[in-house]
Design a protein around this nucleic acid. Structure first.
Ligand SMILES: [Zn+2]
Ligand SMILES: [Zn+2]
Ligand SMILES: [Zn+2]
Ligand SMILES: [Zn+2]
Lengths: 142, 142
DNA sequence: TTGCACATGTTATACCATTACACAATGACA
DNA sequence: TGTCATTGTGTAATGGTATAACATGTGCAA
């Protein structure tokens, strides 16, 4: 038998600290922001954060936002199927929301297949302004 | 009247050099790779590259790949409608291809609208292996 | 015990991008 | 023609992101 292959059932201390920091923040954080928040808990070097993030990403408990160089804790209702996920990122308040949509997923898979491309993962990040940050010229509808 | 607003019809020397470097490369290049290639032409600092890239991005002649921190020259047949573009990025050979698909674009727009999100731009990057890099266990079909 | 897999700690380094300031080229306009 | 605003350029310094390399510790199993 191999060593105690780690699963999401048991996070190490560092992994838990990083995940907590992300969860409490409620929004995306850069690895260095996480590091700063965890200095009181003994973190000293970026690698401590990046190693924990690597595992959390592997477990699907954290997502990486490529266009922000930042990370968010997963808030997806059912954290099972993370094949294709889209994110909305508000340019004004920084709020990030997750969207899972089978139509987009299927269409992207189809496009890839048609191009002879073996799809392994997809990054979909939508930039714009969230509902709360709209200029909202019409205030009638809250 | 305002100053001589630059258009894609006339690129400056630096912009042309950067675009040529990207076009000749045939694949994605980082800003620092471009810098290294252009040292013989007088480039000395990253900012010379980034400033040229900013304009080329604005003109739609270059795309930025968020998941690679790299840039590619646009090879899209009709360089007019770059609203929504997807890229396939081969993890083995690094080849990048552009895909434009109205179905995905419309669906993403629809998803955003449903969420009360004012979509401004979208990033879609597909990772996997291109046709040439497939393990291709079955050689029957070329 | 020994060996292995895995997590961790630490330092240094590489890579990516922007700020700040100075200067040059261009065209608009009085 | 001279002045002005705009835009492009050059350079140095800095900030932000991510990894390489090496050493150490810990728990489990042969
Ligand atoms: Zn999620
Ligand atoms: Zn917002
Ligand atoms: Zn293009
Ligand atoms: Zn390939």
């Amino acid at each position: 038998m191999n060593g105690p292959a780690q699963t999401e059932n048991h996070l190490t201390r560092n992994q838990s600290l990083v995940l907590d920091a992300l969860s409490k923040s409620g929004g995306p954080l850069s690895a260095y922001s996480i590091l700063d928040q965890l200095r009181d808990h003994g973190f000293r070097a970026p690698l401590q954060v990046y190693r924990a993030l690597d595992k959390l990403l592997e477990f699907g408990m954290v997502h990486r936002l490529e266009s922000l160089n930042a990370f968010v804790a997963c808030r997806h209702p059912s954290c099972d199927d993370h094949e294709t996920i889209a994110f909305t990122i508000c340019d004004r308040c920084g709020q990030v929301a997750e969207i899972s949509d089978d139509t987009v997923a299927a269409r992207l898979q189809s496009l890839a297949t048609d191009a002879g491309f073996a799809l392994k993962s997809s990054t979909v990040e939508l930039r714009g302004t969230c509902r709360k940050c709209q200029p909202s010229s019409c205030k009638m509808v809250q």
